[in-house]
C-alpha cells in the first residue's frame, strides 16, 4: 500500500519538474522564468524525496527515510534563497523586465544599492565587464 502511494507521489513529482522546465523555456524574461521554474522544480524534488521516504518506510529501511526527509527540508529551505539571490543580482546588474509598463517598486532601492556599490569602488571589475558585454554581443 505504502509503495503504491510512493509510486503516485514520485510520478506527480516528475510531472512537476517537467512543468518547471517547460516554464523555463516558455516564459519571456528572467523574473518570470525564475518564479515558475523555482517553484515547480522545488516542489517536484520535494515530492520525489517524499516518495523515497515512503518506499523507505515500506521496506523498513529507516535510514533512507530519515535522509530523504532531511534532504527535502534542505531543498525547501535553500532553493528560494538561491532564486532570491540570483534575481537580486539580475536586477542590480540592469536586466530589464520584458513587459513594458510593468509596475516597478524596486527602482529607488536599487539605485541606493548601486550607489553603495560604487562608493565601495570596484574599478578592476568595471574594465572586465565591458569586455564581457562586447563578447556577448558578438
Amino acid at each position: 500500500m505504502l509503495e503504491r502511494i510512493g509510486y503516485i507521489v514520485i510520478g506527480i513529482g516528475v510531472a512537476f519538474e517537467i512543468l518547471g522546465c517547460i516554464g523555463l523555456i516558455r516564459l519571456s524574461d528572467v523574473y518570470d522564468r525564475a518564479v515558475a521554474a523555482t517553484k515547480c522544480v522545488t516542489m517536484g524534488t520535494c515530492m520525489m524525496l517524499c516518495g523515497v521516504a515512503l518506499f523507505g518506510a515500506a521496506s523498513g529501511n529507516w535510514s533512507m527515510l530519515v535522509k530523504a526527509v532531511i534532504c527535502a527540508l534542505f531543498v525547501l529551505l535553500t532553493s528560494p534563497v538561491a532564486a532570491h539571490a540570483v534575481l537580486r543580482g539580475a536586477y542590480l546588474s540592469g536586466v530589464p523586465m520584458a513587459h513594458t509598463g510593468a509596475e516597478d517598486g524596486f527602482a529607488q532601492r536599487a539605485g541606493e544599492l548601486r550607489r553603495q556599490h560604487q562608493a565601495n569602488g570596484q574599478p578592476a571589475e568595471s574594465a572586465g565587464q565591458e569586455q564581457e558585454a562586447s563578447h556577448e554581443e558578438a
Partner: peptide, 13 residues
C-alpha cells in the same frame, strides 16, 4: 504555463 495565452501581468511591488 500550460495556457497558450500566458495570462501574466508581472511587476515588482
Amino acid at each position: 504555463v500550460l495556457n497558450p495565452d500566458l495570462p501574466i501581468r508581472p511587476g515588482i511591488v
